[in-house]
Write a protein that binds this DNA or RNA. Sequence first.
DNA 1: GTGTTTGCAAAGTGTTTGCAATTTA
DNA 2: TAAATTGCAAACACTTTGCAAACAC
Lengths: 134, 134
Amino acid sequence: MRPYTKVIDQLRTAGLRPTRQRLALAKLLFENGPRHVTAEMVRSDAQDASIRVSLATVYNTLHQFTEAGLLREIVVDPARSYFDTTTKEHGHFYHEDTGLLEDMDGDVQLTNMPRLPEGAVINGVDVIVRIKAA
Amino acid sequence: MRPYTKVIDQLRTAGLRPTRQRLALAKLLFENGPRHVTAEMVRSDAQDASIRVSLATVYNTLHQFTEAGLLREIVVDPARSYFDTTTKEHGHFYHEDTGLLEDMDGDVQLTNMPRLPEGAVINGVDVIVRIKAA
DNA sequence: GTGTTTGCAAAGTGTTTGCAATTTA
DNA sequence: TAAATTGCAAACACTTTGCAAACAC
């Protein structure tokens, strides 16, 4: 089987050249099941995997992947940005004491939502349940 | 009628002395209906109202009020922190292009929520509908 | 008077940017 | 070879902190 074909195509479609760094990071991000990462985690994982990539490139790549629809940014902590490899809409559990972000499976629904402000369209819906150890 | 009695009591209960700055900021925050503010907005409003208060104190005060249960922090933008004067649980519309944060009225409900991870309790539930001009 | 709070400026943190060197096509 | 990408270090924006002066009680 040809490696990375899917990701390469997605990158090309997004106008991104499949460079060594982008492919290595894509592998790291998408070949280990659903993940929720920060830039620092990615840099650290990359280092562990002997991928030489600067932090600036990690940031660039995360944002480019997000624009390309390969990642979704989740805003839960003012101190750092999380990126989710699962892009379909879904809720999250956020462990406030550990910083762990976890997918909610099943599909949570919003009921009784008021109508949108005049002339607005939805860009995304965030459902975050903040939890802590009992 | 005695001024600020309620806020003064709430501050005292929280172990906070009702200082000139805290009272002035409380007035500014709580006497103009529901508001969603950033530290910079508060500093600017304070300046307009001839309240002399440093940015450091604005930050301290916002956090102290939040701990005291007078404010609720809303995380929507990695670049800045919002504080909501409405503390009861409710959803928000966030205008991504203007940075305006707006209360959802009516009470949105989450249905079909999966059970919490083992040993966890809920700390808060965020429902944020991100919108933009059509 | 004693302990708390304030304000300033400096430090801190995560993120972004400018630009020369490198890589891709 | 032309255009895109990378990496470094400097710059950035927001937030926090250390500490002396001011204030509340």
